[in-house]
Amino acid sequence: MARALNRPPWLRAVPGGASPAAAPPPSDADLIDAIQRGDERLASALYERVAPVVDRTLYRVFGRREADHEDLMQSTFEQIVITLARGRFAGACSLTTWAATVATNVGLNALRSRRRERRVVDHDATIDLAPASTQGQRTVDARFEMTRLRDHLAAIDEDKATALFLHDVLGHELAEVAVITGVSVAAAQSRLVRGRKELMDRVARDRKGEAR
């Protein structure tokens, strides 16, 4: 007992105290800096920051979570890491906004790839275009329209498709689209207008039953 009394007092950490929520999340600059330094410890923070937007964007490109949804997410993350590590992200917009663009490109490329494969494998397939007669049929038709729209989107030029998707689907302003895609506002607008026209032509030809 006497020995215990002579021992100097010890300090040790105990649970409680300040809330973990008090620690501020790393900023975009912190995340970019960590990746450029090769610091893997912020991998989790990067995931937390951009995973929701990547997930949502890929969902919007395909209209559902496909079987390879996770593979596409992983491709998007790898692309993000490579671009950040090589210092090719200009930092003109937030990390999440830019991540949505990367996910858009990855998604549209995958859609194009599938479209090409379908052409090779299933070029004789026909689709029943019977007019809608019931509520259920209308729902099916609407879904079908959306699927065809995605298909047309994948068929048009990559730059125009990206501009259309960022502006009309994800709701970015024209100036934002210009910054994200690294072009002037005029060029972004031109892509948007020409992309819409091309999409409209394709939709119109589709209505007339012309081949895709």
């Binding site: 959306m146 819409r196 999409l199």
Partner: peptide
């Protein structure tokens, strides 16, 4: 088309 695209969004 822009309306259709907005519907996607």
């Amino acid at each position: 088309p822009e309306d259709l695209l907005r519907a996607l969004g």
